[in-house]
Amino acid sequence: MMGLHIPADFFRDLLAGMVVNFEIAAVALLIGLALGGLLALGRLGGGAVGAVATTLIGLMRAAPTFVVMFFLLNIIPRDATLFGIGVSPSPLMIVALSLVPYSASYVADNGAESLKQLRAGSPLGALQFLPNVTRAFFVLVMSSSAGAAIGVTEGIAVILREAVLLPALGDKLVLFAIGILFFGATLQAGFALMRLLQRHLGRLAMRDQAIP
């Protein structure tokens, strides 16, 4: 541990890698919002469409992200085209797509609840959707580290490629601790933002109730 030497560009690379984690999470959440929103509307509509939407949401909830990632990586041909345009996704996009079942099912569950609140005349209750989506975003940031398994240079991949050159367990643990610190700070900042949003919405609700 005495000999631990972290290269000068390690922290720059780590931060650049974490930006990739945020990119993956943002793409996964955007697609999840679109798909999950449709599924939530479908479920609330009832009937055959509702049953199909409910089944799809259930299956997406059950699909392990890591398996979906390898499934997409192996079934989409590298030279796939649509109307002559290459549509083969990059490894980064594959990680984002593998997180869509989680984000879409999460959005569908919370979106349906928000729509119910809205229809019940509680717009503030419906607005609880925002902190919940913020929570999902930070869960996606943490989950995007799975990309290290298929060669995406995100934050954890940067830490692991440095760790592989360290022979001593103590040195490796120091490096891993740095990773936890960086990701932990991001996660806790995200949750603080979520709590701030919830508190703000709570104050709004109290003010509405106070108005006769």
């Binding site: 989950s143 398994a149 760790a163 643990l173 891993f176 990773g179 936890i180 990701f183 932990g184």
Partner: peptide, 22 residues
């Protein structure tokens, strides 16, 4: 608990494997 919540799943697995292999 806070440390475990702050560590991405892949990193936690790698730490467990590194300690086990030591």
């Amino acid at each position: 608990t806070i440390v475990l919540q702050s560590s991405p799943v892949v990193l936690t697995l790698v730490i467990a494997a590194a300690v086990a292999q030591a």
